[in-house]
Design a protein around this nucleic acid. Structure first.
Lengths: 225, 225
DNA sequence: CACTAAAAATGACATCGTGTCACTTTAAAG
DNA sequence: CTTTAAAGTGACACGATGTCATTTTTAGTG
């Protein structure tokens, strides 16, 4: 899931069948690409094993050599998405520097990722409703961000930047706000423009955590140092 | 869906088989009650036609006399939930009176409804992912609140109470915030306590729309009159 | 009470996607 | 070229769905 390359109509797992890797790896990647292609144009509920294997030219039953079932495919896509999201939110979670500026940056980057992967994000959420195991992994994905945001809020609270509130409850609410705003806006094509969504989320987070007087500003070294 | 009566383990459609109504109506209500009972203890993905009919003592195939499929059952439950939610949010949507006080009241009431119906709410969202028609009805449910909140924000803006922002985008984001916070907190048992959720949502809405200086206050007639 | 027509309920069946399995084909290494 | 493990295949059993012809029940009527 590392080497991602731009390809029509969406980012693919492997650019072209590389001869340097085993046949097994190539077929597995082909299936994942099938899934990305399929979900770009259809909802998860219409996905069947057949629909993923036909484009690969391999028989349906071969699918089960690579994945336990369709949900395991979705789990692979989720782990891909998770990598992309973490890569981009890391800076804010570490959190050395101007908190508001850092947040703005991270938010914009994560919105970009979810815009680009919108239909996949939606498909994962849909699929999680139909499978126990995937549901757990999806919940873990959320919890990971819940934990990080909770820590961040508590850190800011200890500096007096954020008022006294139940950090975890707030983190959970704000993360649901974001993910389901992404799914709503970017989950099915034609997708909404990302900028207004980013702006709205930014406004909500900043005014809730720091107060509305900080909107559109960086917190500057006045407060921080 | 009008006469709702408290009954273990959750609110039922009909208290006891009334002899005043036709057999057909009674069986239909029995199926809906089966669904409420089932979803109180199991996720939607485990629901089958059989699982709804066994408790009624009627054969599986009789189900199709009353509903096209399981999703039509969920549609009926959604319309029930919709009634309950509208009844409680109406006052805020009409919006004559102190806006912040009215909002507090409506929010608390809607949180109570979603707490009481948590597992059902979750089941509807899950089911919507697996059926085109239900997905549309569910989207309409959201749109109805998106429209109402948008109007309300615009009304406040024209009075100078709420800053200039994209009202619709904000309404969509805030509604997703609420519904998916409810689903997260109340969607599966054991459910979280409703009060902290209510408090967090209140904080987010108020500080985003009116500014953090209004937290915990009513806007009073100073501003309004 | 008996009769009848419509409503309600039933069991059997065809369908569809799933997951498994015994078997065949392929391809890489000696 | 041979060997052996990996990759791929077709056929099958399963489970849930939705339909249908048929039977049972119910409610109204003479």
């Amino acid at each position: 899931m590392s080497f991602l390359v731009k390809n029509s109509p969406c980012f693919q797992v492997l650019p072209q069948p590389s001869l340097r890797i085993g046949k097994s790896e190539r077929t597995r990647a082909a299936i994942l690409n099938s899934a990305l292609d399929f979900l770009w144009a259809h909802p998860f509920r219409d996905m069947t094993v057949q629909s993923l294997m036909t484009p690969t030219g391999v028989s349906r039953s071969a699918f089960y050599r690579y994945f336990k079932d369709l949900h395991e495919v979705m789990e692979a896509l989720l782990s891909m998405l998770n990598e992309e999201a973490l890569a981009v939110t890391g800076p804010w979670f570490e959190g050395t520097g101007d908190p508001i500026a850092l947040f703005n940056e991270s938010l914009a980057a994560v919105v970009e990722v979810c815009y680009r992967r919108g239909p996949i994000l939606r498909a994962i959420d849909d699929a999680a409703a139909t499978d126990n195991r995937l549901e757990k992994v999806w919940a873990q994905f959320f919890r990971q961000f819940d934990d990080a945001v909770t820590l961040r809020i508590e850190a800011e609270q200890s500096q007096g930047l954020v008022p006294n509130l139940d950090a975890r409850t707030m983190a959970i609410a704000l993360n649901r706000l974001n993910v389901y705003s992404y799914i709503e806006a970017f989950g099915q094509r034609p997708r909404s423009k990302p900028e207004p969504v980013c702006e709205a989320l930014n406004r909500i987070w900043i005014s809730t955590l720091y107060g509305s007087e900080w909107l559109g500003k960086e917190s500057s070294n006045l407060v921080r140092t």
